[in-house]
Simulated assay, not measured.
Amino acid sequence: MTGPAGVILAGGLATRMGGGDKCLLPLGGAPMLEGIIARLQPQVSALALNANGDAARFARFGLPVVADSVEGFAGPLAGVLAGLDWAAEQGIESIVTAAGDTPFFPQDLVARFLVATEGMEHPLALAATPDGRQPTFGLWPVALRHDLRAALEGGLRKVVMWTDTHGGRVAEFDGAGDPFFNINTPENLAKAEASL
């Protein structure tokens, strides 16, 4: 069995940043997405980007771009489903998701998910810090994609409601700083730039 594939979730509307693609904002002299790819790619067997609209704007990154199949910006779960459908086409059994606006996530993210889900028939887990679960960082089994599609079509939007239904576990992350610090505002971007 190959290891999980990676899917970077960048399908949001970025309303607090004035719209557009947060992952393309400059951080450390390069698009934030470049650093996220560099951090996730060594941990996974393949990598895709979940984004909506014209995929050509991401061509320079050389990743497959998968769009939400559920209408109306249904949130992170729609991106997870798009990633699961793409992984199924590749014959991959699971994906790990990372947010496209969270540049400092752990470099042992996938390894910790695999430890947390040992023995599960359908490995499913979310990252968690002492502040709570991080719903855009998870390990998701392709085997549950049809169940997820049905839940989304039924109106479900809360990640933890779906993962709890399936006995999802948590992978605990703590230590210095906030490994899941995400960039939602211009002030957050300035803070991230200062911490580089």
Rank of each mutant, 00 (worst) to 15 (best):
M1K: 07
T2D: 06
G3R: 02
A5D: 01
A5M: 03
A10D: 07
G12W: 01
M17W: 03
L27V: 06
G35R: 13
R39V: 05
V44E: 05
S45R: 12
S45Q: 11
L49K: 12
G53S: 09
A55C: 07
A55P: 14
F58E: 09
F58Q: 09
A59C: 07
G62V: 07
V65E: 06
L77K: 00
L77A: 02
A78Y: 00
V80G: 01
A82K: 08
A82F: 06
G91H: 12
I92G: 13
A99E: 13
T102D: 04
P103Y: 06
F104C: 02
F104K: 10
L109V: 08
V115A: 13
V115Y: 07
E121H: 03
P123Y: 03
P123A: 02
L124M: 07
L126Q: 02
A128R: 04
T129W: 01
P130T: 01
Q134G: 01
T136W: 04
T136F: 01
G138Y: 00
P141M: 07
V142A: 11
L144K: 07
L144C: 10
R149G: 10
A151T: 04
G154V: 13
W162E: 01
D164L: 06
E172K: 11
P179N: 15
F180T: 15
I183N: 15
P186E: 15
N188R: 14
A190P: 14
A192T: 13
A194N: 12
